[in-house]
Computed example of a mutant assay.
Amino acid sequence: MKKSIITAGAIAFILFSCSTGKNTIQSFDNATITNNCTENYDCTFEVQKDKSLVVKTDDTGHNYFNVIDTPGKTVLKYSYKSITDPRIQDAGYTETITFEIDNSTKDLNLTGKDIRKTKMVLNIACFCKGKAGVRKIEEGTLTFKNNKLHIEIPELVEGQVTRVVDVVVR
């Protein structure tokens, strides 16, 4: 019985992990990512309406966040994830930018420290000492005009891949 549960879990993991690298435009949740996603990586964009972001710091000084139900807010999430062999434990690498805006936002132009209004965070998930974790994005550029979202953030950790994100939202 225990073996069949483990086998079923492994099969489900493989099925949900399989995809191909994208060097072309990719659509997700009525949005099109227009910056290239490098080979062996998968880029996605997710829109969560009526949700907000709660960013906290634990007793050890590390940041974490939760997404909670909040009418009138929207959480947006861009992920850059390596495509790895699911049989290799701890081989993955993901960078995710998560932030919130008002549901009614039609235009947005935040630069410098104004980006803090969105509670934007960068989450790096990997088996890499000193690099993994959630970091608050304290400055950068976030514009949304004519259904085009543009994000620029500084390098927060050495080797960070995600610095510029361009998405067309429909």
Score class of each variant (00 low, 15 high):
S27C: 00
I25C: 01
H62M: 09
E46I: 14
K77F: 01
T24V: 11
P86N: 05
N23V: 05
Q48S: 14
T70V: 07
D50E: 15
K49Y: 11
I88L: 14
K51H: 14
E39R: 06
N35A: 07
N40L: 13
L76T: 03
D85T: 02
E39W: 02
K56T: 13
E46D: 13
D42Y: 14
P86V: 05
D85E: 02
N23T: 13
D58S: 06
R87C: 00
D85L: 04
V75K: 04
P71Q: 13
S52Y: 01
N36E: 14
Q89E: 13
C43K: 05
K73V: 00
Q26G: 01
Y64M: 07
T44G: 13
N40P: 01
F28L: 05
S52P: 04
D69A: 12
S79Q: 12
L76Q: 06
D69R: 10
I83D: 01
K81Y: 00
I25T: 10
Q89D: 08
T34N: 03
F28A: 11
K49I: 10
K49L: 07
V75N: 03
V47R: 15
E46F: 09
Q26S: 07
C37N: 07
D29G: 05
I33Q: 06
F45R: 09
T38K: 14
T57R: 13
N36W: 00
S27D: 11
V54N: 11
D85Q: 04
R87Y: 10
E46C: 04
D59Q: 09
Y41C: 02
K49M: 08
V54A: 12
I83Q: 02
D69G: 04
H62C: 01
